[in-house]
Write a protein that binds this DNA or RNA. Structure first.
Length: 125
RNA sequence: AGAGUGGGUCGGGCGGUCGCCGGCUUCUUUUGAAGCCGGAGGAAAGUCCGAGCAGGACAGGGCACGGUGGUGGCUAACGGCCACCCGGGGCGACCCGCGGGAAAGUGCCGCAGAAAAUACACAGCCGAUGUCCCUUAGGGGAACAGGCAAUGGUGAAAUGGUGCGGUAAGAGCGCACCGCGGCGCCGGUGACGGCGCCGGCAGGGUAAACCCCACCGCCUGCAAGACCAAGCAGCCGGACACUCGGCCCGGGUACGGGCGGCUAACAGCCGCUCUGCCGGCGGGUAGGUCGCUUGCCGAAAGGCAGAGCCAACCGGCAACGGUUGGUCAAGAUAAAUGGUCGCCACCCGCCUUUUUAGGCGGGAUACAGAACUCGGCUUACAGACCCACUCUUUUU
RNA sequence: AGCCCGGUAGUGUAGCGGUCAAUCAUCCGAGGCUCUGGACCUCGUGACGACGGUUCGAAUCCGUCCUGGGCUA
């Protein structure tokens, strides 16, 4: 039960933390997400989500952020500790959603699978 | 039954499970844990108006600048709302209108057209009257003086419109109706309306051009603003030294260290450099707390106050107001309000069944996310429901 | 979140109620010059963010949206 909790100390919470991760991280992406990961000295993993205005209006951005956070929370015991992660939405997907207006938001399973695939490919390296 | 008009309500529900934010209580040294409670909208949006609140400025008044603009109400206020008036549209329910002043003044009205605000006369008409010419003495000519603004063409707009009379030709020149203006009476709080009489017409449009009139308005905005601890520039005081007054104490002067020069050297003087000790004040920035989530009083129970919310009743055509009762309602800051599963509800198709209904499969769930708080406006919106009313057709 | 500016050819701009059927430069296309290309000359295509209103007439004035940008001691 405890392993699913997601308190505030497991999140990136200030601008300095984000800058630190983005400046000294490895970057990888697929068609939906962009992942930055960098080592930290906390002993656990931390998550930051950054979704730009090009992804959609406030409702869409809120929805995407919650999906990413939920996928991270439910799979945090499979994710290697000692790293900071920053997730963004790929501009490829944003362009697609701008062009096709009726494109649906990704469902939870899609986001989860995409996230795990990215992290696994990074572990192998 | 069909077509339509106006207004309103909702815009998924219940449960399980894993999480997030805030508050309270208990345990816990901190850190956290457990329990209970609360946790997005009708537009939270756009930021187009109006208020509260905060800071700054300010005697009062005026100017400038900006806004509003039929009338009367409502409201804390408004550019909002309600009712009515006027004009326009619709068979009608009803809808639309930035709807004051052009006789205070200024400006503008391209092209076309003779002429665009001055009454001018291009093409024209007439030439009755006067002059002239011809004359067969009846008259004729349209040459001059002069009369006319009906007709033509232009334009968005040409100095009231139509008809009849009238005339040399014409003309509100006269008359009838319509329009316009003035006066009186009546109705209305008023915008305005009705009736009667008089006037032959008073002289274009534009004020979302300047302007005039009436009314309103200080400027900036919660990233406002207040506070806290730390550090920095700066400022003040003290201590150390000398001196004066007999002392406490008070006043005055010089800080102090290092290096160099003058001097044989010390002291002293001059120059350069470093700004050290203690205490206090301390602008702004970055950080945090408050503002900030109903407020105040109170230990609590509770009480009082809110342009607060929900009902009922009363007054009012209505907007709205009053009384009584109940209720207190998200508060984040890389920013909570979510993920997933099941059942129900909505729509469509198929099957079973006389129907009700049941089963299976599929689909749809819009616009959109609080950021100091309210009152409006505007814009976006799948679908569902309710109320009132209008027109047409059919039946009784 | 609050506040404030702008929108004219592919690009950068002028216009301030009427000769706007919209200026200039550049780009693009065609032709000329040249043996060919460049430069130069001539001609052409191409725009008032959208909708509504005021006006005889709107790029211009007014309103509502759309869109781009800026500031916040």
């Amino acid at each position: 039960m405890k392993r699913f909790s997601f308190p505030k100390k497991k999140r990136l919470v200030s601008n300095e933390q984000f800058k630190a991760v983005l400046s000294r991280s490895r970057r990888s992406s697929n068609g939906l997400l962009i992942l930055y990961m960098a080592e930290n000295d906390c002993g656990y993993c931390r998550l930051g989500v950054s979704i730009g205005k090009s992804s959609g209006n406030a409702v869409v951005r809120n929805r995407l952020k919650r999906l990413l956070r939920e996928a991270f929370r439910q799979n945090q015991h499979q994710i290697p500790a000692g790293f900071d992660y920053v997730l963004m939405i790929s501009p490829r997907w944003s362009r697609k959603s701008n062009v096709e207006k009726n494109l649906k938001l990704p469902i939870f399973e899609q986001v989860e699978a995409s996230l795990l695939a990215l992290i696994n490919s990074n572990i192998k390296d």
